[in-house]
Design a binder for these strands. Structure first.
Lengths: 350, 350
DNA sequence: TTGAAAGCGCTAACAC
DNA sequence: GTGTTAGCGCTTTCAA
């Protein structure tokens, strides 16, 4: 690796001249600058960031901490963030937690060691105290999920609104028994989404029993599949299903396809998020699309802004941004048909 | 940020003692070690990697350079690599090229500046000369794609074999006019896959005209959709389609769904890769599944191995590993039915 | 307009 | 078993 010293030696100038020329210092003559830059180019000089950082120049690395990038929600986030910070000469260090506290702690430790400039984190349900402590010294933003003890800056979606919209759509169609398959309430997003589901039902003036619930770990597709089968095997099964996470939606779709469920005839389905494939599933999945890309971009821009205005780092004013989802009506939802069939059947039985 | 000096001051020992204690140097007494480690813990000490690197300690950062992480092929790669290197105390820096040379160059520059230990790269078709030069100084492995001028170490899939398998499956079913929708041949994988398609046809003793081809930019879903429509609007349209990239497969599936194509009755389809959603598309997509996770893991392990055996860095023995795909037969392929219909139609016309 | 020198936090060679 | 010291590549005073 060529250093400033190599360039200096080659041009018979001092290292400081080289440094200044490279930094476009006004005190350096145009000619010297030109020669320095030219030989720097020739030698393929790339400034050593480690050395720079030792001089107090802030790092340009942003840590991104997510449960699993394979989850398309987070790969979209990774893409958008990478794109955003790249335009401002920053880099992204990718860390996966697998939704485990210990892994998360280790990742944050690594990020602290690398002296990252900032962190965008989708925290695990209850982060390790050390994570909280370490992050106190690092500018960071919470994404999607929000836990206490971390930065009050948060970017997420309007979780409550998303499931409320989805549920209301089903209620408007006339469904009176709706199943909800979502994430457990230990994670705030899980609680919010369940709340949206429940509120939609009570707002429609219906008793709580109209909503049946099956919760599980948010990123496990198998739970989506299992839950669907459980709910539909009830004595009085729901006539419609609302899902509360992308992964569970995928699970539900897979199970419904395998079991050859008649959608929307025997059961309506509203999904969560809009992935490639949702549009061609069965009759087309009615779902709530999320502005993930915009969300992550906003999050990145905000963080970079925080980093620039270093002086104001200390102002701990909470900032929370919740982006709304958009209902996309396709073929998987319709008026409940089954309600009449049992009625007829019971009459016939008499 | 607490430094070794802080710890030293607090314990009235020298910085070197602290450094040695932290490094578990055998010369340090157990007691001193204990005290040092304890106060290090107390003060929340995290070693400054920048300073360490200046002392020649190798970086623990691996650069991952891919076209776009949203492409599930690459998000799987990102996941597997992150996982693999994490288990050996390394981190992944994520870089996207968008398949553009200039962006790629910039990313590699950044990676060089951060002094990454190594790089896993999915190169653009013809990388900038500076990329080649910069990478000469950095241990790296090519993933999936392979270009000349970079490291001879490459991990990819058996591109030729994948499309050959797919095509042969269709030939076995009796198809005699097959369309191929894939990536352009400027990228080696594109050329290989097209070759596999063509070879399968000639191996079956059929003339080249049996294969009709429509190529485009590999990661553009729209091209998949457009190409499908183009091929099927021919006077004598193919009775089956083979796709050559994941993204194009997605495009083909979307278009086929929109246009309500009768698959496999009027046309059979074999996909590339196996994404969530492929199984529930139409009658279920017959496709060639790829061992992406294993591929990326192998790639990571190999790179880390190279980094450990530093002395052997110079041995430029080529290493190429091509993993085979697996044909998964679902409902989107069947014997060609249409061949008889035109025959009848022409007779009726006379 | 340029040079000399100090120092960021850490490691390692050389004392003792 | 521990302390002293030099130096990694860069930026930034302070001199000239």
């Amino acid at each position: 690796m060529t250093t400033t010293r190599d360039i200096a030696a080659r041009l018979n100038v001092s290292v400081s001249t080289v440094g200044r020329a490279l930094a476009d210092d006004p005190r350096i003559s145009a000619e010297t600058k030109f020669r320095v830059k030219q030989t720097a180019d020739e030698l393929g000089y790339v400034a050593n960031r480690a050395a720079r950082m030792m001089r107090g120049v802030p790092s340009t690395v942003i840590g991104l901490v997510v449960p699993d990038v394979r989850n398309s929600f987070y790969s979209t986030v990774a893409h958008a963030l990478t794109e955003t910070v790249r335009s401002r000469d920053h880099q992204v260090m990718l860390c996966e937690t697998g939704d485990e506290r210990e892994t998360e702690l280790r990742q944050i430790r690594d990020l602290a060691a690398v002296q990252v400039a900032g962190v965008v984190i989708v925290p695990t349900p209850r982060p390790h105290p050390d994570v909280r402590r370490l992050l106190q010294a690092i500018p960071h933003v919470q994404l999607n999920r929000r836990v206490s003890g971390l930065s009050p800056h948060w970017f997420g979606i309007d979780d409550h609104g998303v499931t409320r919209t989805a549920t209301r759509h089903l209620l408007d169609l006339g469904h009176r028994k709706i199943g909800y398959i979502g994430g457990t309430v230990d994670i705030r997003t899980g609680a919010e989404r369940l709340g949206g589901f429940r509120d939609a039902i009570s707002e429609a003036g219906l008793p709580v029993e109209c909503g049946v619930v099956d919760l599980g770990p948010p990123s496990q597709t198998t739970h989506g599949a299992d839950a669907l089968r459980r709910l539909l095997s009830w004595a009085e099964p729901p006539t419609a299903i609302v899902t509360g996470t992308v992964q569970m939606t995928v699970g539900v779709l897979a199970a419904a396809h395998e079991d050859r469920l008649a959608v929307p005839r025997s059961v309506s389905v509203v999904g969560f998020g809009d992935e490639p494939g949702f549009s061609w599933w069965g009759p087309g999945l009615t779902t709530v699309a999320l502005p993930i890309h915009e969300l992550a971009t906003a999050c990145g821009v905000w963080l970079l802004h925080q980093l620039e205005t270093t002086g104001a780092t200390a102002h701990p004013t909470a900032f929370a941004s919740a982006s709304p989802g958009t209902l996309i009506v396709r073929g998987s939802t319709a008026e409940p048909a089954v309600v009449r069939r049992p009625a007829r059947a019971s009459r016939a039985a008499r």
